[in-house]
Amino acid sequence: MQEPRDYEGVPAMPEFEDWVSARAHVLMRFAFLVTGNAADADDALQEALISAYQRWDVVAGAVDPDAYVRRMIVNAHTSWWRRFRRRETPVDVAWSPALAGVDAPAEDVQRMWGLCGELPPRQRVAVVLRYYEGMQYGEIAEILDCSEGTVRSQIHRALATLRRRLDGEDAADA
């Protein structure tokens, strides 16, 4: 067997499998928060990774692979939502017994999670990128392929919706 050859200092690029091993858990968390459930998160991440694998030479060397895959996750999710979900009737999303074995979160956290699930997909993505990933508006705009102003507007509307619904529930409880 021949030894690997050095091609004039061409920078080493991560192998796809190595990169996924290192980053998959981070991206799966993002996908889970964006989609709201494990099955859709797995599907969205798989679609994104397939796309990345098919162009790995370019994705790994010329762009931030994380950003590329996040964008693909968002596209996969919003595409499915556009096709299938908008016909569905929203239901209350509460703590799932399927998550047995993990301590249930506090009641207000459960309630907020349920309300997040009712946000339109792009508002939800913007909120996750802002409040979970801690991204700047410009970074979010790149992933969502829109202007920074649109991102601000999406987040503003999402927060207004969440506040209104939380206040409404509190008033009803009282």
Binding site: H25, M28, R29, A31, F32, L33, A38, A41, L99, V102, P105, V109, M112, W113, C116, V127, V128, Y131, Y132
Partner: peptide
């Protein structure tokens, strides 16, 4: 909320 649920991915 987001950090709490991210752990459940």
């Amino acid at each position: 909320t987001l950090h709490e649920y991210a752990d459940r991915a």
